[in-house]
Design a binder for these strands. Structure first.
Length: 921
RNA sequence: GCCCGGGUGGUGGAAUUGGUAGACACGUUGGACUUAAAAUCCAAUGAGCAGUAAUGUUCGUACGGGUUCAAGUCCCGUCCCGGGUACCA
């Protein structure tokens, strides 16, 4: 009998489950470590080999931290609200709850087979009413809060009321809002209750407003900006259009600056932080007011106030509020035509159009410094929703302005020294400024500073920071999500009281109503667990609502009176390590940070950032195989001969292919149409398939489930192999070719310490010096590598160590035990089995990491002199026990060294064991 | 266009601070064991040149330069691949 992974893995998985080995209990005296995976959306397709990659890494790190003495929280749950399940419900009529239950069951069994050490008693599902009632609770907090720009934090809505009672809101930008009405304190007091509510709605962090939204007709819902990729829905790939609708939004823009600044201290990858920075899009600049002929003020925003004297005209967005007043009678017709045509264009069409288009209003403005008369144009390359919706056009310094000026024959003046702008604008920042009055001869940076100073001093404008980030649309017109704890009276939204939450009502059909209302409008009065006012809110929250705070709930998932208890919150704190895919860079990861900062403001949690360290695991790509069918025939030709024919390439299931060679019988049996297929083969009688690396997908027949591989090699092998594939962060194609290598490693380990009858055979005699060297070298390297999350190199290190122990015929029990503990995080089943065979009563999960002893760590290598500088210092890598004369000889005999030293002798030699050494001459 | 990554044998990848490039594994080839297969074990394996051989020697980390006694690693320029993002003023 050899290494029987099937029975071993089954046995220990059952044991761990029966004995709740992985249950985590708060131990306030022990150091904690919180490690989290991005919880999965339980789709119908189940897991493929790409999914567990991050889970394996986190499991390894969690187990490792446990052997290092930490109390490790490593929970798992499901992000179980979402679109695909609902689409499935529409097609089949099956309630999303039932489909979700089935899918999670399947996920669970797949995860269990991999031997993960999750504490399943803490499992949460976002679609569980006991969970989402707390999501609703946070929504209520957001609704009852506003953002005070002076204090720089969220405040109670009652603070806003107090402020209005004594100050009104004239002039002050004391709170973040989207209100345009101004009123005095006395006017405020005279408003009706309804009017007050309507105004307050403009100040709440969760607010209802008419906004341009991304409407996806095919999905029948609105989408957030991060759910739209290149004008299409991220899920489904349907066209998305712009539409004005009354929607819930969250005022994330209030937090733009804190979200931007907070990135600096996070231990996240640079690329990911950069993505968030770009998404927030912070730009520092200045606003400037231009007087017009008609005595209006046009306010523009610019980051390049140094180019102030290069302005040749102004451009307004078509939606700008002054367009109508500025248009002259002669131009009225042209302007109306242009406005109509641009209104008909979707955002996408506007953006895809490369040609500049615009129209002259007939109006003029005056340059605030030169007094020059500037034409005012309208063009849709200026966006109404960014900055002030108007720009000062500097054709010599901005390519868009240059193209526009060129197209409409507007003069282009040059303010850059020694720069040719006849073919394009100069967008660099190196040139000196000329033709610019008080900015002449300054560098770009100095000119920006001086110009801002003057602009502010003369009262023409003020410093301003703009953000690209927009408020997050928070409602969806779908069914399978969190309902809002909101009812309406006279079309004004009111919250349900503190203790009341809405459970998702059952409905007969999951489609929108005939009148176009969301599916929840199908629910009759009695279908709701609570019904107040004229009507209930029939929107649901977006997919990211539940996932924006789930890491908090894991600390205390069963708490019925609080979202999480203070005590547990204080103990577990921030997530120390978060592992997941980079596709959530500007969605989930930004929203979680936003909610965390908000809850921090409310004094409910004690940290401002949710995830201290983040690792993005790279996607595992599939390797698809192709066969080549000769056109209009049922004959398939091998790869090497395909160019001799006119062929169509077809995806073929990778199960029928071994090492790119097709199993002809399996292929023929795949589908009826192939049963009498004919083949043109290679000279060796085989059919070779083509291949391509693509995303794993069912339709490409290139998915590989973990289940098949576990069946064939066992979970321990799969875990080791997924790590062995390469660096965690890297995108890599899945390829099973190498799996036999790690499987052999486990078999070798088994054989090394078992005899022919499969009995454990180790020795208690003292091992050789060499063997201690091997194991201690390995202990050191494994610890360092796991700590720096280099999970792939650990596997090699362990393989080398085992090879050495085998060669040394070392079966020393304590060395083997140490080795098992090192291997345990990667391969928990086989190590647990051997651990018990060695006579240990307790599970290996309770073992502690072996202590490394530096006395076994001498280097054997000698390298040549390595460094030379003017002071005649040399660096040399050598064993620390080598004597000085020998070193001297070594140095003196080295060819290149001789060249520099001639015959002089070293004066002093400084030796640092095992390190590079300085030799002073 | 802009911003981030990255480019190392036939393949996946090592090389942690500039210090023997190619660890470890796959694959391939040859051999042992076997009636045979599977399994296992041993050996060779970056390229070129010289040699019967041990061995010696030159080239070699996308390309071209540079710094250094020493460069896969640092600097400058070019090319290619991947990701993000875009009329954001």
């Amino acid at each position: 009998m050899q290494y029987n992974f099937k029975s071993i893995e089954k046995k220990w998985q059952a044991y761990w489950s029966e004995n709740s080995t992985n249950k985590v209990v708060e131990n306030y005296k022990q150091d904690k470590f919180y490690i989290l995976d991005m919880f999965p959306y339980p789709s119908g397709a189940g897991l493929h080999v790409g999914h567990p990659l991050g889970y394996i890494a986190s499991d390894i790190y969690a187990r490792f931290k446990k052997t290092k003495g930490f109390n490790v929280l490593h929970p798992m749950g499901y992000d179980s609200f979402g679109l695909p399940t609902e689409q499935y419900a529409i097609q089949t009529g099956i309630h999303p709850k039932i489909a979700t239950d089935e899918n999670t069951k399947r996920y669970r069994s797949q995860l269990d087979k991999l031997g993960f050490a999750y504490d399943w008693s803490r499992e949460i599902r976002t679609s569980d009413p006991n969970y989402y009632k707390w999501t609703q609770w946070i929504f209520k907090l957001l609704f009852n809060s506003a953002y005070c720009t002076i204090q720089g934090k969220a405040v109670e809505i009652s603070d806003v009321i107090d402020y209005f009672d004594s100050n009104g809101n004239i002039g002050a930008s004391y709170f973040c809002d989207d209100n345009i009405e101004e009123f005095t304190a006395s006017q405020w007091k005279l408003f009706s209750e309804e009017d007050k509510q309507r105004i307050l709605l403009c100040y709440r962090l969760a607010f209802l407003s008419d906004t341009m939204v991304n409407w996806c007709p095919k999905l029948g819902t609105v989408l957030a900006n991060d759910e739209v990729k290149e004008g299409r829905s991220e899920r489904g790939g349907f066209l998305v259009e712009q539409k004005k609708m009354k929607q819930w939004s969250l005022r994330i823009t209030a937090y733009a600056d804190r979200l931007h600044e907070g990135l600096n201290d996070l231990d996240w990858s640079d690329s990911l932080k950069e993505m968030q920075r770009n998404w927030i899009g912070k730009s520092k600049g200045v606003t400037m007011k231009f007087n017009t002929e008609s005595d209006d003020l046009i306010e523009v925003f610019t980051t390049r106030s140094d180019t102030l004297f290069g302005v040749s005209f102004l451009v307004l967005a078509p939606e700008h509020e002054l367009v109508d007043r500025l248009t002259s009678d002669q131009q009225r017709n042209d302007v109306d035509t242009y406005l109509n045509s641009s209104r008909l264009k979707s955002e996408r069409e506007r953006q895809s159009e490369k040609k500049m288009s615009g129209v002259f209003t007939g109006g003029y403005a005056y340059h605030p410094f030169t007094g020059d008369k500037l034409e005012i144009w309208i063009a849709d390359y200026v966006l109404a929703s960014y900055g002030t919706g108007a720009v000062m056009a500097v054709p010599c310094g901005d390519q868009r302005d240059w193209l526009f000026a060129n197209h409409y024959n507007i003069d282009i003046s040059n303010i850059f020294k020694d720069v040719d702008i006849s073919n394009s604008a100069y967008e660099g920042k190196e040139a000196r400024i000329i033709n610019s009055d008080f900015l002449n001869n300054l560098s770009c940076e100095d000119a920006i500073n001086l110009s801002i100073e003057r602009i502010v001093k003369e009262g023409i404008g003020e410093k301003r920071i703009n953000y690209r980030l927009r408020d997050a649309v928070f409602s969806r017109q779908r069914y399978w999500g969190e309902p809002f704890p909101v009812y309406y009276l006279n079309d004004i939204p009111y919250l349900l009281d503190d203790k009341t939450f809405v459970t998702l009502p059952d409905i007969d059909k999951y489609l929108p109503t005939e009148s176009g209302e969301p599916p929840l409008a199908r629910a009759q009065k009695d279908d709701w667990n609570v019904f107040k006012g004229d009507r209930m809110d029939t929107n649901i929250m977006p997919g990211w609502a539940g996932s924006s705070w789930y890491f908090l709930r894991f600390m205390d998932p069963l708490n019925d009176t609080e979202f999480v208890s203070r005590e547990k919150l204080e103990y577990w704190g921030q997530v120390d390590l978060y592992i997941g895919g980079a596709e959530h860079a500007v969605g989930h990861l930004l929203y979680s940070r936003f909610w965390t900062k908000f809850l921090y403001d409310k004094g409910l949690i004690f940290f401002e950032e949710p995830f201290k360290k983040l690792i993005n695991q790279g996607m595992i790509l599939g390797r698809s195989n192709f066969v080549y069918r000769i056109k209009d025939s049922n004959t398939f030709v091998t790869k090497s001969k395909k160019d001799e024919y006119e062929t169509i390439s077809l995806h073929v299931d990778i199960d029928f292919v071994d090492n790119d060679y097709l199993d002809l019988d399996k292929f023929k049996n795949w589908r009826n149409e192939y049963s009498d297929a004919e083949f043109i083969l290679d000279s060796d009688g085989r059919y070779q398939c083509g291949f391509e690396i693509e995303k794993m997908s069912k339709s490409k027949y290139n998915t590989q489930t973990p289940d098949d591989l576990i069946e064939k090699y066992g979970a321990d092998t799969l875990r080791l192999y997924e790590m062995f594939l390469g660096p965690l962060e890297q995108f890599k194609p899945w390829d099973v070719k190498g799996i036999s290598g790690v499987h052999n490693f486990l078999k070798k380990l088994w054989r090394h310490i078992h005899d022919k009858d499969n009995n454990i055979c180790v020795s208690v005699d003292t091992a050789s010096e060499l063997s201690y060297k091997s194991i201690h070298k390995t202990i050191k390297k494994v610890e360092e590598d796991i700590e720096r999350h280099s999970f792939n190199t650990v596997v090699s290190t362990l393989m080398i160590c085992l090879n050495e122990l085998i060669e040394q015929e070392c079966k020393n029990q304590s060395i083997i035990s140490d080795f098992l503990i090192l291997l345990f995080p990667y391969a928990p089943h086989i190590t647990e089995e051997i651990w018990r065979e060695l006579g240990n009563k307790e599970s290996i999960t309770l073992a502690s990491f072996p202590k490394f002893n530096s006395k076994y760590l001498a280097e054997d290598q000698i390298s040549c002199p390595v460094s030379f500088n003017g002071k005649m210092r040399f660096k040399i890598l050598l064993p620390f026990n080598m004597d000085k004369n020998k070193i001297e000889d070594l140095v003196m005999s080295h060819e290149k060294t001789k060249k520099y030293l001639g015959s002089s002798k070293p004066q002093r030699i400084i030796i640092v064991p095992n390190k590079i050494v300085n030799i002073v001459f």
